[in-house]
Every structure is written in C-alpha cells, then in structure tokens.
Nucleic acid binder design. Sequence first.
DNA 1: TGCACCGATGTTTTT
DNA 2: CATCGGTGCA
Length: 773
Amino acid sequence: MSYLEELNDAQRSAVLHKDGPSMVIAGAGSGKTRVLTYRIAHLIHGGVDPFNILALTFTNKAAREMKTRISKIVGDNQAKNLWMGTFHSVFAKLLRFEGHHLGFPSNFTIYDTQDSQRLISSIIKEMGLDKDIYKYKQIQQRISAFKNSLITVKAYYNNPELQEADAIARKPRMGEIYNEYVNRLFKAGAMDFDDLLLRTNELLNRFPEVLVRYQERFKYILVDEYQDTNHSQYLIVKALSDRYQNICVVGDDAQSIYSFRGANISNILNFQRDYDQVAVFRLEQNYRSTNTIVRAANSVISKNKDQIEKQVWTDNPDGDKIIVHRSATDADEGRYVASTLFEWKLNNQLKNGDFAVLYRTNSQSRAIEDALRKRDIPYRIYGGLSFYQRKEIKDVLAYLRLVINPKDEEALMRVINYPTRGIGQTTLDKLVVAAKETGMSIFELLSPENRSSLKINASTSNRLEDFATMIRSFQILAESADAFTLTEHVIKKSGLVLEMKKDGTPEGIARLENMEELLNGIQDFVEGQREIDEATGSIAEFLEDVALATDLDKEVGDDDRVALMTIHLAKGLEFPYVFIVGMEEDLFPSAMSMNTRAELEEERRLFYVALTRAEKQAVLTYTINRYRWGKLIDAEPSRFIEEIDEQYLDNQVVDFRRNFSPYLDTSLFGEVDHSKLRTVKPKAGTPPSIGRPTEKQLQKLRKIKPASVQPVAESATLYADLSVGAKVNHERFGTGVVQSIEGIGVNKKAEIKFESGGIKKLLLKFAKLQIIK
DNA sequence: TGCACCGATGTTTTT
DNA sequence: CATCGGTGCA
C-alpha cells in the first residue's frame, strides 16, 4: 500500500475513512483527484468488490483517466467492473436496462438541446401561439429548470405560483406546452438531458424493488464536484446511498459555477445536515500553483459572502506576478496573446500544450484563433459548436438514429426531406396532425395502409414510400453490419454525399471532409469497442457515446497544441501558463449575471476557477474596444482585476489620459498605478475607437519608440485612402466603383456599384476590398 | 415544392 | 456577424 505514502495527512485520512458518509472539501489544486483515485483503490484493496462501487465524475474523460490510474494500483480485471462516469452517462446506461418500467424502449434516443428546442418550436407553432411571446429558447430553459427541480407537469399544475409567474410573463399556456413536450418525447421514445436524471428519480421512486437492487449494488458511492450537482442529482445520490450511507462527496464550494443549469450550492453546504455523523476532511494545501497565484486567488474569493471557511495555502515558490495587459481591440488582444506566447515558448523552450487561453464566452475564441493562426501556432478549441453538432454531422446521425429508433420524430423531421426528395411542408404538416390524432408515430404513418387515409396525392405518396423503404433497408443492414459499414452505406444511399459533392463550394468540401472524419471516428470506435467486454461496436452504442460525450472527452492525444476553451470547461484542468482574456465589465462578469449578489458571486467563483488553473503564470487581458454582434463597443476593465490584491499584479497599463495619444499602440504602455485602472473610461468617440493607425502615422510612431510597436493588421491601410470613384474588387461581388462613402474609422461604409449589377453598401472593415489602380 | 434572398434577432456558461 | 424564419418567384 505504498500509495498511501504519496499523500499528505489530510489526504490520507480522507482515503482511509471507509464506512459512513464523508465530505472532502478540496481547495483548488489540493490533490482532489488523487484522493478520489486512491480512495477507490483503497476500497478495492480492502476487499470491496469493484462491482459495488459507483463513482460519479464531472467528465467522462476524468472517469477514464481515473480508471486507468486505479488499474495501475489494483489491476485491470478489478478496475473494469467499476461503474464510473458522469451522472448523465451512468444513468443513461441504467435507464437502458430499467427504462422499460417507465414505458421507454431500451433503445431510446437522447435528444440534445437543439433537438429539444426544435421540438418545442414546432409545438408552439402547432398550438398557434405567438412566437415572439413564446420564445422557444426561453421555454426550453424553463422546462429544463422545472425538470431539474423535479417539477413534473403534474407538480406544475399543483403549483399556483409557477402558473401565476408564467401568466404574468404573458405565457399562460406554458403548462400545455410542457405537457405536450413531455408527451412527444415519450411518444418518440426519447429523453432529453434532464430526463436522464428526472426519469431515474421517477424509476427509483415508483419501483422500490429497483431502488433496493441498486442500493445493494452501489454500496459505495463517490461523487466528484459535488458543489455542482442539481436537485435532481442530489435526490438520486440520496436515494441510492440511503441504505448503506457509504457516500463520499468531494467538492469545493468556491468552485461552484453551474447554477445556471440548476446546480445547487446548498447541496454541499448542507451535506452535514443531510447525513448523520459526516466525517469532514479539508484539503487546503495547493500543489499546483505559485504562491502568488494562490494568494491572489484567495484575495478575490474572499469577497464572496457565501462560503465554507477554508484557507488554501502552498509551499510553492512565489513565482512571477500576474500580468495585466490592455489592448485596443479584441484583435490586438489576440495578437498580444499570440506574440507573448510565442516569445515565452521560444525563450523557455516550452510546448504549445503548456498554454491555455480561457474566456468567458465561446464567441471570444475567434479573435484568438485568428491571431494564433497568423503566427502558425497550433491550437485546439474545446467546446463551442462541437463536431457532432455540425449540421452535416447531425444529418448523418439523424439517419442513424432513425435506424435505431424509427419513432424518433426529430431525427425523422430532419432528414425526411433532406436531401430534398419532394416531401414539402404541406405534407409534413398533414403527417404531424395525423400522428397526433392517431397516436401513431410519423414513421408508422408512412406505411401504405396508414398513408392511404391521409389526403396526400399519389406522387407524394410514392415519395413517402421510397423514404420508408430506404430506412427499412438500412435497418435490415444494421442487423448484420457494423457501425462503420452501415454509416458508409447510409451516407451514400441517402444522397447525402451527392448533395455535398454537387455543392462544390469550399464549405461544401469542408462538409464532405467532416463526413469522412465522422466515418473515421466510427471506425475507431468500432475497433475500440471490440476490446471491451459486453460492447459490440453497434451503432446504438456509438450514438449514446456521441450524445453524452463532452468535447473534453475526445482523446486528441499527443499533438502539441495550445488549448482554447471557456472557463467552465477548464474546471478541473491545469496548465503552466494561462491567459484569461476579455477581462471586461459586461463580459466577465457577464452582463446577464450582475442582477443579484448570488449571480455576481458565481461569476467571481468562475474567475477564481480561471485563475487557479495556472501553475506558473497567469495573464489577464482586457480591451478598450471589442467587437460584439459585429459592432465595435466600448469596454471597461473588469472589477475582478481590481479585486486582486495589488501586490500580486504586474500591471502593464498606464493612465489613459496621461499617456494618451490617438495612434499609440497599446504595447507602448508602461507601468501604471493600479488604482487608476477603472477611473479611465474611454467614452464613445474617443480616437482609439475610430480605427487603426495609418502606415504613415505608424512610421512616425516608430521613430519615437521603435522596439515596441506591434505589427498592424494588413488590412488596416487598405481602405484608409479609398475615395469616391475608386475602382475596387470584392471577393464575391467582383469589380465595382465606389459611389459614396459614409461613417468614419472602422464604421466607414462605402456604397459600391458592381459590374455584376447592383449597388451594395458595405462596411469596409469586413468587405476586404482591393483597390484596383 | 424548392430556392434565393431579406430582415429581424440575438449571446453567457453545458450535460 | 450568424442564424433563422418568412416571403416571393420559378
């Protein structure tokens, strides 16, 4: 049991505690994963059958990694029997076995958010409601919130307050929509993400014998990131652990960042009230970060009122101060990140993988990407629009879903007329209505005997027949072929490949390549699954994997790249060098989250998470102007910068007013008095927001401070001297003549008459015009 | 029924 | 700027 020697006292006692409830409060970087891993290994060592252990982690990747480490201690044979994974994937698996009690087939489809929203959208339309009042995204979020709080349709109707709230919000028919949504999911043999938890609760509640069976099975339960569990998850854990009370939760209230999806911080705050005789362990020594980073992070989080008392500290050296950097625009910010990263990499012989760029919103990645690409720095974006959410991929998956579960209405609606095969909206409307009236699924309605009762003309009827026949032929193939063979067949026969090929545009080609990548992915999957017992490499398994895979789950392995991701995704990860970009008011903290103290505190925790990802060096950047919705807006430094104890900052910013010069590049700024940071609010119309310096002005500037000038965008001077009458070339519209010019700086627009016909008003910033001499 | 084009509209964060 | 739904024409 040499592994026990690798632990500090607090960690060791948490690992050694065997029976009864325990809670591990683990500060950032305090070796939480190590405790979880060793605790599981130790349980197995002590004679607990791995079959009786359930470990709920935050990502599937974390589960896999932990499993690998556990195998190294206790051996493969033992480790493979562990049930380990995210709440969603573990209980999806459980529902595949037990869902029949609730009337769900074992091959139920998992709807992602987009599927849910599409379904809600069509329900709103069918009910003839005003889509400007009943916004499908809002409705989906509200329903999701209901489900996460275990408010079923019935509970909703028993709750006058909720109904009243919806009535006041001018959505009196919310309940009906909710009801219809639940029914439609059921009829489609589908569950949304929230259902995976809600239906598990329903199952355990309504079927005591099932509950007992799993209580007996999961004698030891471990929950990671407990601070981010929602009510639904809380109840599942409570129910399953009720018999043996061998529940160990690990978490850090200071890192609770998922309240927007129902996470309830009081789950962890009240844990000691919920269980008797809770053993509490505190991990307060940070092994990850420099003393500077640890203390800076502490100084920020101490501003929060709601928290469990704890003091994170470290033995690590002080390290460098946290760099704060200001840029003129988001493009400049990207350039600063890229050049700094490049320089450090060169000077210190670092790898790309030593760096992460973290941001609050996915849309911020673009400027960073552009800058990194220009410097040929390899990067990888995590999250955002994931591969499996791309249209062309979802289309392929929809065909496959339909093969597995023909009742899957969203999948059917997606592909019944894509590629187009002459089945139009009118026909679809008829089908939806008939499906509602008869209780049959749309796919069932496609068969000749059911179809005949609909008022559909003969040629359309034939097309429906062809579609149904095609899907059935796929289903037959699926019985004998593996996932790869089936998918290859499907994309050919469905006409998807042809559709892509005839497109011919660069985007079309990219889409085709994506499909190939999907095929490769499926091939890998099939081969990988064959090595696992019980797994067959079937398409059903693949689809489940895809539905619940986090972007972090994809093993991209060995290639050395800079990581770009949102702070949310970065939770649990660590990097030597971390750039936190977009440190601006309204962005971080987000404008949407400043209404209440609780919201603001969550943003602050998010910042705490971001900061504590860094091992050696953290860099905070903000801009003066940033593009949002394609418009340049003023920005102001985030309050969070100010909240860091000044002594930990290396503030590379000067008082704006003092050093102001309209064409000064931001990298010229020297040291600054930190307290001035937010007193300088560039107002709309101040020169820097007008645009970039011209080449001439830059040259003048270089004479003054030659070394510090950053390269300016190539496009900068392209339109500076554009005048009426100039002949220009546009990528898409061809050549034309400038008719008039309006606006100034980046907002400059030109009206251009193109030879191809038509006059267009273009924002020069985006138009990428070439001036033809 | 299909397709090209227009304008309105929207953004946190994710399983 | 991206996406989506609606509109108007072939």
